[in-house]
Computed example of a mutant assay.
Amino acid sequence: MSLAAVETPQHHFPSSRKSKSKTNTKAKKQSSRDQQLYNIFSDIQTLYTSSKLSQTVTKHITSTFTKSTTTPIKTLLSLGLGSPTTPSKNQSRILKQLAIFLAISTSLEAGGHSVQLYAQDPIFTRADESFLSSLGISISRTTRGSELGEAVSLIDSSTVVYSPFLTLEAYEALLLHGAAGEKVRYLIGDDFEKLMAKWPKFSEERKQVTRLVKGAVGAYRRRALGGDGFWEEDDVAFPMALYERGDAGMVKAKM
């Protein structure tokens, strides 16, 4: 057998170099997309800081979670955030919700609370989890948007739940049925007064919100969180409120 017969065909080498080139190009494109996302998010954080909404939220966070009058807050848990890295018509709104979440954490830390951050949404992708982890946020898991999943073990009197656009089914599990026997003490999310007005009078969704208001929300003190300079029409802004349940569990909500 000749020497030429056992040599590796030369055309294999260009193919290998081409494959490496494609891999490097893909990695560069991914890195560029990641950097673009961080830049966009940084701009959103700057916009939030300068908005009237930020002033209102900070004011109520500061007054509600003063170190001398409340149980130390140890956990800030986001439920139903959405996918911050997936390009969609809702991506800007999701990133803005995330900016508020991190700003709340900053306010709590400034008030003397040492807070661990968690986020849970069944639609999180690996890219979402990587992005959130880079921001200091740990991932909690659930398989369905209507179920609390691992979040159950995170909720107690030292937890603040942040829940923009949470499904009504998840709100029922959170507020009506409780989490592992614990009642949510602090909730920052949809303003149920505005949420009720969103649905037609005889719709199933209106009935669900009514059950929530009559069965759970009435036991909370409500502080509306509003302000200009942040939400735009395309964001589909959501009216927010901070709900606080007293030690006795019956602090009348201002509905």
Rank of each mutant, 00 (worst) to 15 (best):
T46L: 05
V115T: 12
V213L: 09
A197R: 14
V152P: 00
Y118R: 00
G178N: 15
M1Q: 02
V184W: 11
S153I: 00
D190E: 13
A241Q: 07
P164G: 05
I104V: 09
K74F: 03
V152Y: 13
Y118T: 02
A197M: 11
Y243I: 01
Q55S: 11
M196H: 14
K20H: 11
M1N: 07
Q97T: 10
S114T: 09
W199L: 01
V6E: 03
D228Y: 14
S32T: 15
G136R: 02
K194S: 12
T25C: 10
L3Q: 12
F101H: 01
A197L: 14
P84V: 07
I94W: 01
W231K: 05
R93N: 12
T25M: 14
V184A: 06
Q45H: 12
N24Y: 08
I188G: 04
D156K: 12
T142N: 00
K198L: 05
V115R: 05
T210Y: 02
H11F: 08
F230C: 02
K207Q: 09
H11M: 06
S78N: 09
P239R: 12
Q10H: 05
F165N: 08
L108D: 10
I94F: 00
A224G: 14
S92Q: 13
K89E: 03
S158Y: 03
T106P: 00
P72I: 01
L225E: 03
I104K: 02
L225C: 02
L108R: 07
Y171E: 01
A197Q: 13
T86C: 10
R185F: 04
K194H: 04
I137G: 03
I123M: 03
S163Q: 11
